[in-house]
């Protein structure tokens, strides 16, 4: 390992590593099918390649599908086969839950099972497709408090916004996260444009990133476009 992802990943431009907060809590928000999971998996892969351990919690998706995301993205971005990078597979664990059964209490129980038995000690947590529409502010506060208690370096959530819902926060974070944006240090918004995808940095705790920056991504690879 000691490897890293292709220079053109938006992650490199964002320089998440220059985060001033610990843990850094991030949110990727977009409409369905635009590329939230792909961006989260990029963050996860970069962490894994640098030797950090990632716990990927996928809500409503299967283990096999999530594994495929990682394998495909690494092949697309770096041209590498995941199975052939020594040790990298051990840096990741996937937990999938049905939407109805996921809760902070259940995650905490599973998380502690892993750590207490010395099976896996995560540095980074990914929670893909968290149900922001049906959770209360206190649910999320509890979850974030749990992340802080467990000394994780970073956690990233993804949220789905909807076409017909125009509600937005002052900094432009769309519903359903418009009223809880203060709980996150980093917020990225993905929007599809005609032949590209735009990634807007709505909030950042990185000393090297300017809020309001917009990156143009290639829709097939989600890498930064030339120019």
């Amino acid at each position: 390992m000691g490897n890293q992802l292709n220079e053109k990943t938006p992650l490199r431009a964002l320089d998440i590593s220059a985060s001033t907060q610990a843990p850094s809590i991030g949110l990727v928000i977009a409409r369905a099918g635009v590329g939230k999971t792909a961006i989260l998996v990029q963050f996860a892969l970069d962490n894994m390649l640098q030797g950090n351990k990632v716990l990927h919690v996928a809500i409503g998706a299967g283990v096999e599908k999530t594994r495929t995301w990682y394998a495909d993205l690494l092949r697309t971005i770096n041209g590498e086969d995941m199975e052939k990078i020594p040790g990298v597979m051990k840096q990741r664990m996937i937990m999938t839950f049905q939407e109805s059964s996921f809760s902070k209490a259940l995650l905490a129980e599973r998380f502690d099972d892993l750590v207490d038995q010395d099976i896996f000690s995560p540095d980074c947590l990914i929670i893909d497709d968290y149900d922001f529409e049906n959770c209360s502010r206190s649910d999320l506060e509890e979850l974030i408090a749990f992340i802080k208690e467990r000394n994780l370096q970073m956690a990233w959530f993804s949220a789905t916004s909807h076409r017909g819902d125009d509600r937005k926060s002052a900094s432009g974070v769309p519903a359903p996260c418009n009223e809880i944006e203060d709980l996150f240090n980093n917020v990225l918004l993905i929007s599809p444009a005609e032949k590209e995808i735009t990634l807007d940095i709505l909030k950042s705790d990185s000393s090297r990133v300017k809020v309001g920056t917009s990156l143009n991504l290639d829709p097939s690879t989600l890498l930064i476009k030339k120019g």
């Binding site: 594994r67 597979m89 996937i94 099972d113 038995q117 010395d118």
Partner: peptide, 28 residues
């Protein structure tokens, strides 16, 4: 799930993922 994961770990196993569906779960 906890004890089963422990038993896999003791056997030099690498847990790829867990899939929880209400009261039933699968460990891969």
């Amino acid at each position: 799930q906890g004890p089963v994961m422990g038993s896999i770990n003791q056997r030099r196993g690498m847990i790829i993922g867990t899939n929880e569906d209400g009261s039933y779960s699968v460990i891969e």
